[in-house]
C-alpha cells in the first residue's frame, strides 16, 4: 500500500507539471546509469573507432557515417552523421579535439554544443581544423541528464 502510494505520488509529481512525453523522458533518464562521455575517433584509412562508455545512450544514438575531406586551405574537415534511433527525443551534446599524426592533441573545441534530436532525426556535426597538422578528429558525445 505504502509503495503504491509512493509510486502514485511520484507519477503525480512528474506528470502534474509536464507533458506525457516529458514525463516518459524523465522516468527513462532517472532509470539510466550515470552519464559518461562517448568518443568517435577518425582513422587514417577513412574509417572510425567508436568508444562507447555510456551504453544506454550508445544504443539510442547511432553513428551512421563519417566523412573526411581536405579543404582548399589544406586543413581537414570531418562530418559525423548521427541519428536518434530511439522512440523518445534525445539531446546530444558534442565537442571535439583534433589530433596530429603522432596522436598528440593539436586543437580543441572544448565547449559542448547542444543538439536536440527528435525520434528518428538525423544530424550532421561538422568539425573543421584550423591547423594543417591536425589530421584526425575525436568527437566527444554526451547525453543530457
Amino acid at each position: 500500500m505504502k509503495t503504491k502510494l509512493s509510486l502514485l505520488a511520484l507519477v503525480f509529481a512528474l506528470s502534474s507539471c509536464t507533458t506525457i512525453i516529458e514525463t516518459g523522458n524523465k522516468i527513462e533518464k532517472t532509470l539510466s546509469p550515470p552519464d559518461a562521455v562517448n568518443y568517435v575517433t577518425t582513422k587514417p584509412d577513412g574509417g572510425f573507432t567508436p568508444q562507447i562508455n555510456d551504453q544506454r545512450f550508445g544504443d539510442k544514438i547511432q553513428m551512421l557515417a563519417v566523412r573526411k575531406s581536405k579543404l582548399a586551405s589544406g586543413c581537414m574537415q570531418v562530418q559525423f552523421d548521427l541519428r536518434n534511433g530511439s522512440y523518445l527525443g534525445q539531446t546530444v551534446n558534442v565537442s571535439f579535439e583534433w589530433l596530429g599524426a603522432d596522436g598528440s592533441i593539436t586543437e580543441r573545441q572544448g565547449n559542448w554544443m547542444t543538439t536536440p534530436l527528435e525520434p528518428g532525426a538525423l544530424t550532421t556535426i561538422t568539425a573543421v581544423a584550423l591547423k594543417p597538422e591536425s589530421t584526425e578528429c575525436r568527437l566527444r558525445v554526451l547525453a543530457s541528464r
Binding site: L71, Q109, N111, M113, T114, A127, V128, L130
Partner: peptide, 14 residues
Amino acid sequence: FATAGSTMLQSMVT
C-alpha cells in the same frame, strides 16, 4: 557565447 562563437568560427573557416 562559447557555443555561438565555435559554431560561427566553424562556418566562417569553411
